[in-house]
């Protein structure tokens, strides 16, 4: 897929939960060419040199006339992004990276931790388009950080929720819920594929469960990144075949490939 720099118009930029925002962007080129699991590199300002680099953000929704980005305000860059207004233009470089490889014959277990849910929304839409049975496990620190659950239910996925403080759903980690589910339900293991995105410790726990239960899977990884196109070799991820680049070889990797 040809990568492009596009100037997209912000259709909306709304707070959807505490610290979390969704930015709707009008861009026909990215709407047409993006795949679930891919990301864009967002430029905050054409002239300023601080922040200097673009911000890599997973594509949350792929729509007819554009895409949306879901982000958590974690630093100066995302704080500036939060303040962008409807009608502003913003430069996007994308679509970047390798997305999810949908296994059409398998049931899907989608596992989201925190704002790791961002790319999994577009994925679930695609899964449902392919009429794939989908169970969606969402984990976050607290109820205020759980969002999208209703929309995902509406798409036809079964949703399980875990919060660390127990304010919503199961009290504990999302991987605890996954394990409980696996205990209770006899799985036709070769017929299931895991798709996961979230903090590294969560992904590691998912990988361990997948290994024990012999379930295949894909994880969307995150690493400090600069260019986003494979030129600087900055975003190294340790794999069983040596270092690979998160931006180019990933961000989606086979779950068995990663050295945790």
């Amino acid at each position: 897929m040809k990568k492009k720099i596009v100037n997209a118009k912000i259709v909306s930029n709304k707070r959807i939960a505490e610290d979390h925002y969704e930015m709707d962007l009008k861009t026909a080129a990215l709407a047409k060419n993006s795949l679930p699991g891919q990301f864009v590199n967002v430029k905050l300002d054409e002239k300023a040199t601080d922040p200097l680099l673009r911000i890599p953000l997973g594509i949350h929704k792929i729509k007819k006339e554009g895409i949306s980005l879901l982000y958590k305000v974690v630093g100066e860059g995302t704080d500036l992004l939060r303040n962008k207004k409807k009608g502003d233009q913003i430069s996007l470089l994308g679509p970047l990276g390798k997305g999810f490889d949908i296994k059409k014959e398998n049931e899907a277990f989608v596992i989201a931790g925190g704002h790791g849910i961002a790319p999994l929304y577009a994925l679930t839409k695609e899964l449902k388009k392919n009429k794939i049975d989908t169970i969606f496990f969402i984990g976050a620190g607290k109820e205020k950080h759980i969002f999208c659950a209703d929309k995902i239910r509406k798409m036809g996925a079964k949703v399980y929720i875990a919060t660390e403080d127990g304010s919503l759903g199961f009290k504990g980690y999302v991987t605890d819920v996954l394990e409980k589910y696996l205990e209770r339900n006899k799985l036709q293991v070769p017929r299931v594929t895991i798709y996961a995105c979230g903090p590294k410790p969560m992904l590691k726990a998912v990988a361990q469960i997948a290994e024990t239960k012999k379930i295949e899977g894909q994880v969307s990884m995150d690493e400090y990144m600069a260019c986003g196109i494979g030129a600087c070799m900055g975003c190294a991820i340790k794999t069983k075949d040596g270092y690979k680049l998160c931006c180019k070889d990933g961000p989606v990797f086979d779950i068995k490939e990663i050295v945790w």
């Binding site: 400090y224 600087c232 900055g234 340790k238």
Partner: peptide, 18 residues
């Protein structure tokens, strides 16, 4: 190459250890 993280942004700069 070096172990990650290999890049981080600083004020108007990029610190790398590729």
């Amino acid at each position: 190459g070096n172990p990650p993280p290999r890049v981080v942004e600083t004020r108007s700069g990029l610190l790398n250890s590729i």
